Simulated scan of single mutants.
Amino acid sequence: MASSSHRRRPPPDQDFRWRPVRGPLLAVAAVAAVALVVTLAVAFRPGDAAGATRPDLAVSGHPSEAVTSAAATPRKPSPTPSTAAPAATVSRRTTASPPPSPTASRAPSPTAGNATARTTTAPAAGRIRPGTTYQGVATSYDVGNGDGACSYGPTSDVLTAAMNTADYETAKACGAYVSVRAASGTAITVRITNECPAPCAVGQLDLSRQAFAKLAPLSAGRIAITWSLLSPAVTDTVSIRYKTGSSRYWCGIQAIGHRNPLARLEVRTGSGWLALTRTGYNYFLSEQGTGCGGGIRLTDIYGEQLTLPALAVRPDVVQRTGVQFARH
């Protein structure tokens, strides 16, 4: 006899209502009735909430089916990262916490009193630009007491140089530190304190005799060189000096001891900052006395600014500020 799962279904128009029930059918009917009674008893036993679905009745009871049913249960979707652009942020550089450089580390600038320091990102370099190597020739001269066109006054520093007029650029090169390298590979660092007029050519440096002698014998007279701007480690800080004859009504102001070449000097006025005109002898003039004795703001060729408090007009007196430009 074929199993019930393979039993053929009767034609749909056949009527079984008055068909005699045979033995096997009676047995099947009895088993089905017992199963129905058991199912109803279990479903409505005390403690089961009306209408609740039991986990053990939701599936056929096979472990594999139970796992499949649990996996098919919808899960709360995970948060999706937003694709919207983040709000713009602005970071300001300060000399107290300069950003890292890919080529050199920058040391923080010291501050003193109520002097403040602020850095911008716009470079203000002139003819002598950072990261550029220049070609020229080196000659030598007797520097005497060390004074020169930059008006720094006598000095015991013998490693100095005079810059050709074109690159001197109306004293903009004053105070710059440059690395000078001979064809032999020997290099020295000198500070620009003077101007070398014609016949000095563009790119030419007129070195102190002491500096020249470190590159070649003085008898060589003239040698080929390359040179580039430096931002070296220094122990000194910037100082301010008012020119002889300065007063509230006219003054000349000079910055001394700056690590990097100075691009601009401004004085505070009632209407804001006023940039003073630079002279070839390295003083910034206020012809009408505007800002004389007031606050001073210095900007180097990298765009960094140092803001100084008001300083008394004391002609020919070096007044220390306690601040310095950052190293590059």
Rank of each mutant, 00 (worst) to 15 (best):
N260Q: 00
F44D: 10
A115Y: 10
P102L: 14
A125E: 06
Y168Q: 12
A58Y: 02
T186F: 08
V267M: 09
R54N: 09
I296G: 02
L207T: 01
A50H: 08
T89R: 15
F212N: 03
T83G: 15
L215R: 00
P10L: 08
L311W: 05
K172Y: 09
T68L: 12
L229P: 02
V202M: 09
Y249Q: 09
A27I: 13
L285T: 04
T68E: 04
V38T: 05
T94M: 02
R259D: 05
P217Y: 09
E266N: 08
S3F: 13
W227Q: 02
S239G: 07
S69K: 08
D316Q: 06
V317P: 04
A41D: 13
E169M: 07
S184N: 15
K172H: 14
R320K: 10
D147P: 03
Y283R: 09
T119N: 01
L57A: 13
R181G: 01
V267I: 10
G126V: 03
P79F: 06
G175E: 04
A50V: 08
S82N: 14
R268G: 11
L218R: 01
T132D: 03
Y168H: 15
T68F: 08
W227G: 00
R181E: 04
D300M: 02
S231P: 01
G221N: 07
G322D: 03
R17Q: 15
A72H: 06
A182G: 07
A198E: 08
T279E: 05
Y168V: 09
L265G: 07
R19I: 12
A312S: 12
T235L: 07
A104S: 13
T121E: 00
Q14T: 13
K214R: 15
R19P: 00
W18N: 11
S239P: 00
A233M: 02
R264G: 04
V318Q: 13
P315A: 07
A2K: 14
L262S: 07
A29Y: 01
R54P: 06
D167L: 13
Q288S: 13
R9D: 06
S101N: 12
M163S: 14
L276G: 02
